[in-house]
Design a protein around this nucleic acid. Structure first.
Length: 290
DNA sequence: AATTACGACAACCGCCTCTCA
DNA sequence: TTGAGAGGCGGTTGTCGTAAT
């Protein structure tokens, strides 16, 4: 009895992610935004990881526009205030903090704010627990403001991935390349419109397979019940999925991402893709440092 | 220099909810 | 209506770096 595990824990790798795995996951998610779900992703990407682990890694670490550490006083105050109101609804609290994940907020709370909270809060006023306030993640306002996400140039987001993959020549990358080639023959052009916020406006039938994961979590994007996500596109990445053209063309105004998705510039191999991305990353970086 | 304690955070676990056939 | 599959979420554990002894 009981539910079946999402993966065979004995045969999948666990523990810290390597740069190579990060690179494979990041490029796969960014490339095959709507090609399946998290459970099948590891197989398709050539990653020997649990699908849930892939999802968590992407959401908490690899997603663009994330900020790690360095919580400001304002953020601390907001967390303390919200905790007093709704308790440990980390996803809801994180939704109020642009670029923060629920895991980040939770860790920050456990290591720093918890003590501060206990010192400043009288014992007679315990935090409102889960049973007291029926607040759910989906209760956050739909279409919550995402414009305040601190934008990180996609080129820079891809930098370490490109660097990590370019000099590895590892087996994992080769495997991923092979699977990528297989996948290219498996994916049909989608008919869907993506908004600039990454939301997908499906125009297909309801039988369209769900994309990787659902919304990136209510946590940092307040996507609510938006059933689609996967590529975390912040507003500077204009994504177009023209339904009329029918050629599957995807356009971005970021050169690096555009290269990644545009069939017109389909590289000969996964390595070529990363190499070309790397060139543009370096060029972008050079401009930024001037 | 070696050992211990502690903080920070990444990752895992397992239950719950949602979706869809 | 129901059950299986998949994602969401909060709690917990593991790991690593660093300060203290």
């Amino acid at each position: 009895m009981g539910r079946s595990p999402c993966c065979d824990k004995a045969s999948v790798k666990r523990g810290p992610w390597s740069r190579e795995e990060d690179a494979v996951l990041r490029n796969f998610v960014q490339r095959f935004a709507n090609a399946g779900n998290w459970i099948t992703l590891p197989h398709k990407a050539g990653l020997n990881r649990c699908g849930k682990s892939c999802r968590l890694r992407w959401l908490n670490y690899l997603r663009p526009a994330l900020r790690h550490g360095g919580f400001t006083e304002e953020e601390d105050d907001l967390i303390l205030s919200l905790y007093g109101e709704i308790g440990s609804r980390w996803s809801v609290i994180a939704a109020k903090l642009p670029g923060r994940t629920d895991n980040d907020v939770k860790n920050h709370w456990n290591t720093k704010l918890k003590k501060r909270y206990l010192l400043t809060t009288a014992p007679s006023t315990p935090p409102i627990g889960d049973d007291n306030v029926p607040v759910r993640a989906n209760d956050s306002p739909p279409g919550e403001d995402q414009s305040s996400l601190s934008p990180l140039p996609p080129a820079l987001v891809n930098l370490d991935a490109a660097l990590a993959t370019l000099d590895d020549g590892g087996e994992l990358t080769q495997q991923s390349e092979q699977l990528y080639a297989e996948l290219m023959g498996l994916i049909e052009p989608r008919s869907a419109s993506h908004t600039s916020t990454g939301e997908v406006m499906s125009s297909g039938s309801s039988s369209t397979p769900p994309p990787f994961g659902t919304s990136p979590t209510a946590s940092s994007f307040g996507a609510g019940s938006s059933a689609t996500w996967p590529v975390d596109v912040h507003e500077r990445d204009t994504i177009l999925w023209p339904e009329s053209s029918g050629n599957g063309m995807v356009e971005f105004d970021d050169p690096c991402v555009a290269r990644t998705f545009s069939p017109a510039s389909t590289p000969d191999s996964f390595q070529d893709l990363l190499a070309s991305s790397y060139d543009e990353v370096m060029a972008t970086q050079a401009l930024m440092y001037y």
